[in-house]
Write a protein that binds this DNA or RNA. Structure first.
Lengths: 162, 162
DNA sequence: TTGGCTGAGTCTGTCAAGCGGACTTATCCT
DNA sequence: AGGATAAGTCCGCTTGACAGACTCAGCCAA
């Protein structure tokens, strides 16, 4: 690398997919909320008790996730109680599964617990453990070093190019 | 609760892999920093200029990521300048690629831009686009609804079971 | 040798957000 | 009427983010 600026410096980040996605997910508590929903915990008090999120913050996060289309409110009624609402994943929310699994997978590898993992994603049909793999359209399964992030059709040049 | 409480309510979240991983990654800016490194931008000023992170926050984040083993500092010297340091991904950092790709993939689907994506992960060897897929050890490729998160060997029962 | 340039920080004051704990509301049961 | 409960709302404090100015170290040119 004789000192030319990296190619990426020519491109703006203002419409970057990662930035835009992080505006939806990039909060300290959001993945904790999603985890609860993924494991089947759907009620405000249950989510709060398990995750330890301050009530006010949980209220705000749930509202934001609903507004962004990841969750929806669903009425339920316990016997002898009034109707309340629980929170469920929409398809958009469910489609975050690969992100969750990728996070779990990384954590299991780099922050392992003695005795094995506390949670395991598994295939309901066959009971085997599920992981994520990188795969290209040609069917190869490259490892990280063989993947590059390139500008796409809507990549914007940076105003103050370096 | 005759609607019996979800199974997950019996388990504690205190050692949950997602929580532990989020202590490393779960900050608003962390993925922005990682993105820069993944696209090849490695110097403090470049990262700051592209990502818009306040200097102080960037300093603090880089230090945290180094301490957690995701980055390392690497000396470099521009002609006619003194030696400085740039930041590079370690293997642990590189192994976050599936997380990044999963995030990009979700963003491309649910927060699409007119005209296509601004960044595309591709296989260096063949130039084809890379995505992540869920796969179980038996070789199936389940979709999100067919995956369940189950307690593993170090799952802890909750103190105040509900 | 002095003075300016540059990348990579540090310092400071302001302001928003997170936090724990107490309080509120609506409905049901006894 | 009184009590229980889930799901919030309210409050005051503390922490962290933020923008903008300042610092520091080494190199170069005059």
């Amino acid at each position: 690398m004789s000192e030319q600026a990296p190619e990426a410096m020519r491109w703006s980040t203002e419409n970057c997919t990662i930035s835009r996605t992080m505006q939806v997910l990039g909060d300290k508590w959001t993945f904790h909320v999603l985890r609860e929903l993924f494991v089947g915990v759907r009620r405000f008090e249950d989510i709060r008790a398990r995750s330890g999120i301050p009530r006010q913050v949980l209220t705000e996060r749930l509202a934001a996730l609903i507004e962004r289309g990841l969750l929806r409110r669903h009425p339920y009624r316990l016997p002898g109680q009034r109707e309340r609402y629980e929170y469920r994943l929409t398809q958009a929310g469910l489609d975050l599964y690969p992100v969750l699994v990728a996070i779990i997978q990384w954590g299991d590898q780099y922050l392992p617990l003695d005795g094995g993992p506390p949670i395991i994603p598994e295939h309901r049909d066959c009971g085997e453990r599920v992981s994520v793999v990188l795969r290209c359209e040609a069917g190869h399964e490259p490892d990280a070093r063989q993947v590059a992030i390139r500008p796409g059709p809507t990549a914007k040049p940076r105003a103050l190019a370096g």
